[in-house]
Amino acid sequence: MSIETRLADLGITLPRPAAPVASYVPAVESGGLLFISGQIPFDDGVVMQGRLGEDRDTAFGQKAARMCGLMLLAQMQAALGSLDRVERIVKLGAFIASADDFTQQPQVANGASDLMVDVFGDAGRHARSAVGVPVLPLGAAVEIDAIIAIRPA
């Protein structure tokens, strides 16, 4: 089954890949890997903002992480032409804007991690970091970057 078919079965429509907001490119392919720049969460075109444990809860953070995951998928598709070139999700790096006493960063990051497993099955299982930070670009609640193993074109 193609990944595009899997997305349709899951009822997932990918967003339009976000353009960079500074001096970088969304993705770089090198040595059989695709490195994707940090993606922030958009819901109906609006950045999902806030700080977990301050003005946002874990459920909001999980949704934001999932939206970051959808944007990662959109960037993969734009860079590779097809998600069928994805061999494995190698690593996700999750940055969660959070209050000093918030410790649920791993549960927040599961929003993106679970999406990758839903879409790619065992090839979606990955290594991961989940780090609390005081602030993210554009006031985003979550930002996630990725390293992807890819098949030759």
Results as ranks from 00 to 15, higher is better:
residue 1 M to N: 10
residue 1 M to Y: 06
residue 2 S to K: 02
residue 4 E to C: 06
residue 4 E to P: 02
residue 5 T to Y: 12
residue 5 T to G: 12
residue 6 R to S: 03
residue 8 A to R: 14
residue 13 T to R: 15
residue 16 R to P: 00
residue 17 P to F: 01
residue 17 P to G: 00
residue 19 A to N: 09
residue 19 A to H: 08
residue 20 P to R: 01
residue 20 P to S: 02
residue 25 V to G: 03
residue 28 V to F: 01
residue 29 E to H: 09
residue 33 L to S: 14
residue 35 F to R: 13
residue 40 I to F: 02
residue 42 F to S: 06
residue 42 F to H: 14
residue 42 F to G: 04
residue 43 D to P: 01
residue 44 D to H: 11
residue 46 V to F: 09
residue 47 V to Q: 03
residue 47 V to I: 13
residue 48 M to N: 04
residue 50 G to E: 05
residue 53 G to L: 03
residue 54 E to F: 11
residue 59 A to I: 13
residue 62 Q to F: 10
residue 66 R to M: 09
residue 67 M to K: 14
residue 71 M to C: 05
residue 72 L to D: 05
residue 75 Q to K: 11
residue 75 Q to H: 12
residue 78 A to P: 00
residue 80 L to V: 10
residue 82 S to D: 06
residue 82 S to P: 02
residue 84 D to C: 06
residue 84 D to M: 10
residue 84 D to E: 09
residue 85 R to F: 05
residue 85 R to I: 08
residue 91 K to T: 13
residue 92 L to C: 07
residue 94 A to Q: 09
residue 97 A to D: 06
residue 99 A to K: 11
residue 101 D to Y: 13
residue 102 F to E: 15
residue 103 T to M: 11
residue 106 P to Y: 05
residue 107 Q to A: 15
residue 108 V to A: 12
residue 111 G to F: 11
residue 111 G to E: 10
residue 112 A to F: 07
residue 113 S to V: 14
residue 117 V to E: 13
residue 119 V to T: 09
residue 119 V to R: 03
residue 120 F to L: 04
residue 120 F to Y: 12
residue 121 G to L: 07
residue 121 G to Q: 10
residue 122 D to L: 12
residue 125 R to K: 13
residue 130 A to F: 03
residue 132 G to I: 05
residue 132 G to Y: 01
residue 132 G to V: 03
residue 133 V to D: 01
residue 135 V to S: 15
residue 135 V to T: 15
residue 136 L to A: 05
residue 137 P to S: 11
residue 137 P to R: 07
residue 138 L to E: 12
residue 138 L to P: 00
residue 139 G to D: 04
residue 139 G to L: 01
residue 140 A to V: 02
residue 141 A to T: 00
residue 144 I to N: 04
residue 145 D to I: 00
residue 148 I to N: 08
residue 150 I to C: 08
residue 150 I to K: 02
residue 150 I to Y: 01
residue 151 R to I: 00
residue 151 R to S: 02
residue 151 R to M: 01
residue 153 A to T: 00
residue 153 A to V: 00
